[in-house]
């Protein structure tokens, strides 16, 4: 494992911890899109099917369990927790996220590295992860005022994606046969979706202002 991959995994882990911390300690999910969180839960559930069949490393298994556990508990908090769910703004979080799922299923059936159940599910999870942030970005655009923790959560997610790209570049030059077009292209699309957010995030940071997206 190279430094970019490790740093990517850690920023991903921190992003989830920041979100759980926000929800658990201040008992609020204001500004968080349930739609995006449901999509992430589906992403991890379909990607980590191999947790029972393939052993890669203890690190790998632990991280998979953490991502599965945290994504489903975040969804549980927003939907079921009696205090947290009151802060969920259903009226603003209106992105039709179900419509993202079907195209990803079709695309995974058509474009995959191998036509097996596990491989198609893995590919589906990559396509879905690429677009899963969209409901969250739309919600941000609507609410405009973003609290610090929500801003940091999205920043860390974007940082994780960017570090994974550096990891792929590194692996491409250091490992033989390391060519994964599907992973790379969907990862690149996903990272590009953060470009706009990053621009405003750095702008507010540089000027020491509160993060605010333009209308």
């Amino acid at each position: 494992m190279n430094i970019f991959r490790l740093a990517g995994d850690m920023t991903h882990l921190f992003s989830v911890l920041v979100l759980l911390l926000k929800i658990h300690t201040i008992k609020s999910c204001a500004g968080i899109s349930l739609k995006t969180q449901e999509l992430y839960a589906l992403v991890f559930a379909t990607r980590y099917l191999d947790i029972f069949t393939d052993y890669i490393s203890l690190y790998n298994t632990c991280m998979k369990l953490i991502f599965l556990g945290s994504s489903f508990s975040i969804v549980w908090y927003i939907r079921r927790h009696k205090i947290v769910r009151r802060s969920y703004d259903k009226e603003q979080d209106t992105f039709r996220h179900h419509f993202l799922i079907l195209p990803c299923i079709i695309l995974a059936l058509l474009i995959n590295e191998k036509f097996t159940v596990k491989e198609v599910m893995w590919t589906f999870s990559l396509y879905l992860e690429a677009v899963a942030i969209l409901p969250q970005l739309v919600l941000l655009q609507r609410t405009r005022n973003i609290d610090n923790l929500t801003g940091q959560y999205i920043f860390l997610l974007g940082a994780y994606r960017s570090l994974y790209i550096l990891n792929w570049i590194y692996r491409y030059f250091t490992e033989q046969h390391y060519v994964h077009w599907i992973t790379w292209i969907s990862g690149l699309v996903q990272t590009l979706l953060y470009a706009d957010f990053f621009y405003y995030y750095f702008h507010s940071w540089k000027n020491n202002e509160k993060l605010q997206l333009p209308a």
């Binding site: 991959r5 995994d9 991903h12 191999d50 393939d54 890669i56 490393s57 790998n60 991280m63 998979k64 991502f67 590295e113 191998k114 097996t116 596990k118 491989e119 893995w122 994974y164 990891n167 490992e175 033989q176 046969h177 390391y178 992973t183």
Partner: peptide
């Protein structure tokens, strides 16, 4: 040689 189905990344 790494097989295609070896998904060692998260």
């Amino acid at each position: 040689e790494a097989k295609d189905e070896d998904h060692d990344e998260l």
